[in-house]
């Protein structure tokens, strides 16, 4: 038994003054090379190197993927949320810097990378993003300057996802669990339980 668990810590008084929050980052993962980046979550980190490291070790290992993409939360600009899908507009042009466009198919859904537009500012980038990618099928468009997006791809990393990660996924246990249940339950009960598994837990 660890001794640490038996130590009783005693504290008096208030905490030291807080440090405030670190920068917020938005994280996306790519399931395959050339595939779109899909929203995965958030993290807090003081700089881009630490943020990329966290994104790889947390989100990049929690699902089968080939890389992560991050940007600061304050680097993104979202279109306003309406109740109807965004209609295609006729905002054309290719002047300005490249912006990465993410689209959200419906409220409550995740943002998925759609492509690039060039624009002189975020507002124009949103208009051009809607024109290029909304197609009346998305409710929100997010734009981020391509220069503010940072990626960690498997091909650029010496060691990442090289080992057996089956212990991290439910499917890594399914076969063993089913075999073990067979010693306690007959096949019909087991099938009903498995159906309940899918309904209740997956």
């Amino acid at each position: 038994m660890s001794k640490r668990r038996h130590i009783t810590y005693e504290f008096d008084g208030d905490l030291p003054e807080g440090t405030g929050d670190d920068a917020h980052w938005v994280v996306y993962t790519r399931k395959n090379a050339g595939g779109p980046a899909r929203w995965a979550g958030y993290l807090d980190a003081v700089d881009v190197d630490l943020a990329l490291q966290y994104s790889r070790e947390h989100y990049g290992l929690d699902e089968a993927c080939v890389g992560t993409l991050i940007h600061r939360h304050d680097a993104m600009t979202d279109s306003e949320y309406g109740l109807e899908p965004l209609s295609p507009a006729s905002a054309k042009g290719d002047d300005g810097e490249p912006w990465v466009v993410f689209v959200q198919k419906g409220r409550g859904n995740i943002h998925i990378e759609a492509g690039l537009v060039h624009a002189p500012n975020a507002r124009t980038a949103i208009a051009r993003g809607i024109a290029s990618f909304a197609g009346g099928k998305v409710t929100n468009v997010r734009v981020v300057l391509q220069a503010d997006c940072h990626e960690a791809m498997q091909e650029d990393l010496a060691i990442w996802r090289e080992h057996d990660l089956s212990y991290k996924y439910a499917r890594g246990y399914s076969k063993d669990v089913r075999a073990k249940w067979r010693t306690f339950r007959d096949e019909a009960d087991l099938e009903g339980y498995r159906a309940g598994d899918i309904k209740e837990h997956f």
């Binding site: 995965a40 979550g41 409550g108 991290k168 439910a170 890594g172 246990y173 073990k180 837990h201």
Partner: peptide, 26 residues
């Protein structure tokens, strides 16, 4: 969105626990 992401990972936790209980009871 966060719940959907979390539930994906919780499925591994549950399945790992089920495997542990089955192993111990065997």
């Amino acid at each position: 969105r966060t719940m959907n992401r979390i539930n994906m990972e919780e499925a591994f936790h549950f399945k790992s626990g089920e495997d542990m209980v089955l192993t111990l009871m065997s």
